[in-house]
């Protein structure tokens, strides 16, 4: 089955080749930038978790509502409750970090299972997983999330579960096509004839040696999507709820003043989103290019 997926791969067992040497100069920039973003995300997470912030992100100052940047020690100004923007920007990553991991985890674990079931064993399993994948693909994602959130609870974990679930088909089809390819190259046949059992073939040779890069890339993309999805939902009123800060609800709150000519309160978190998502996308793209260059040897 041929289906659009975000990456086209040259496939093969490439585990023994040093990637970095094969990366072109542009890819190094991409990956470098991506890694920088990941590093910043981790640093922000640690800063937030240990409470090492310029201000208490929950501290309200009604005398200082919507202050412009660099007012009385608030480097990025304050929000609609007089809370420090910079601290809230930093701690916002906490809203995404674990839930985003959950989304990625769901997509990868279930996607891999589906992909292996469909690709390795095929037959009725293939048909069943294809049906489920198609079913998940048929839902307009945001509408489904809207429905779930309105129906149950505007909780970031609910949102991320659905982002994860709707990403299952993407991962599944990637794994599936990879296994198909390996089958075509008689890779699996060869492995079986060497006396390897199914578990070893699937986990070690298929997933570990051939699919880990796919999965890493999917993970970076999943995080990016999770952040954008939360932002859209925040605009609709169903994103991360106050008082927990998230970039989405900060852009939303700030954009209430956009039309009055106060651009900064929404621009700062929007830029944070922009740079982070670009980082994840570039990281994914760079990794992809690097892996693919194997063919040019």
């Amino acid at each position: 089955m041929r289906r659009f997926s975000q990456y086209a791969f040259e496939i093969g067992d490439v585990s023994h080749v040093s990637f970095w040497k094969k990366a072109g100069p542009m890819d190094r920039v991409y990956i470098g930038y991506g890694l920088l973003v990941v590093l910043l995300v981790i640093i922000s997470y640690v800063l937030g978790a240990t409470g090492t912030l310029p201000y208490d992100p929950q501290e309200i100052d009604l005398e200082l509502i919507m202050a412009p940047p660099n007012t009385s020690g608030h480097l990025l100004g304050t929000d609609f409750m007089g809370r420090d923007m910079l601290s809230r920007l930093i701690i916002s990553i906490q809203a995404y970090f674990l839930p985003g991991m959950l989304a990625i985890g769901i997509a990868i674990v279930f996607g891999t299972c589906f992909g292996v079931l469909a690709g390795y064993w095929g037959g009725a399993l293939d048909i069943a997983t294809t049906y489920i994948s198609n079913l998940l693909n048929s839902f307009p994602r945001l509408v489904l999330i809207l429905l779930m959130v309105a129906a149950f609870k505007p909780d970031i974990y609910y949102i991320m579960i659905i982002v994860g679930v709707t990403n299952i088909p993407v991962v599944a089809s990637l794994i599936h096509s990879k296994i198909q390819f390996l089958k075509q190259k008689n890779f699996i046949e060869a492995a079986t004839s060497l006396g390897l059992n199914n578990v070893a073939i699937i986990f070690k040779h298929i997933l570990w040696h051939n699919c880990r890069s796919v999965l890493i890339i999917q993970a970076t993309l999943g995080m990016a999507e999770a952040i954008l999805m939360e932002t859209s939902l925040s605009y609709l009123g169903f994103g991360v709820q106050e008082p927990t800060p998230s970039w989405g609800n900060m852009v939303q709150a700030g954009s209430n003043y956009f039309m009055q000519g106060k651009f900064w309160p929404s621009t700062a978190p929007a830029l944070a989103i922009l740079f982070t998502i670009m980082g994840f996308h570039l990281l994914g793209d760079g990794l992809n290019n690097m892996l693919e260059r194997k063919g040019d040897r």
Partner: peptide, 9 residues
């Protein structure tokens, strides 16, 4: 502990 909920729930 503020909890914002959808109207119906």
């Amino acid at each position: 502990e503020p909890e914002f909920q959808e109207w119906m729930s």
